[in-house]
Amino acid sequence: MHEFKQLKIISLILVAFNIFAYLLLPDDAEMLPYVSDLLTVFTSLISVFFLFRTYAFFKVFDFAKTAWLLFLIGMCLNFLAETFYALNELVLMRDMNEYFPSTADIFWCIAYLPLIAGFLIIGKGYRDSGLPLGNMKSYSLVVGGLLVIVALVSYFLLNPIVTDAETRLIEKVFYLYYPIADLVIVVLAISMYYIVYQLGKGDITLTWKLMIFGFLSITIADLLYSYLGWMERYGSGNLIDVAWNIGYLLIALSAVKQKQIMQLIAKGGNS
């Protein structure tokens, strides 16, 4: 069976399992933290695996390969973060609402850097390619939409965190870092989506749409987690975990599609 189709089916099974497990297991079920933590470790590992295979398929070390390498490094760091989080909660039995920031947070924070760099490199490459950049009216709409998102996140999340006297400074730094870095990812992902939207239909468009929605899914989960975590209301079995898993799996699918396109080109066929 086609690898893309296989991974799509596996992804649907994993997401369905995630949702049903969370809906059916009681909140205090012993199994819940294991499902919650190990599933995100597994899905992040899937994204790392397929990103590596795609990165390795590029023969020439050009900016495109560099961008995919940066996405791979970012996802590796996310995988390590998920693993450390699971280790802390499941093996060392730490209450992750109290044990914040943890080792996992350091890896998550660093992970944003190569991911942002990857998007910037692709964006620069596109700008230098001579391909149409779109029109001012569309950019104005996109910028307007992004400003609304930034304003909402600032009002509902950033400002309350900054003004909260009960939150320690180190916690504030991390609580603020995440949504700010996530906003940067959202801006870059939406900008990339606008570029891809101009391409119309095609496998390349699908590759990037999967990647973009993958990152958007992760950042939405991150923003909700930041809010819930600051309110100390996040716990294992929260449905926002599904968004992380969906995000990792969409990125894996993007990598598979990209490799498929390059394999087809190498064979001399059409996408």
């Binding site: 020439v60 495109a64 490459g125 390619s129 390349i204 590759t207 396109i261 390059m262 080109i265 190498a266």
Partner: peptide, 8 residues
């Protein structure tokens, strides 16, 4: 190159 690399 942006979308399929130099070789593609």
């Amino acid at each position: 190159v942006v979308f399929v690399g130099t070789d593609g």
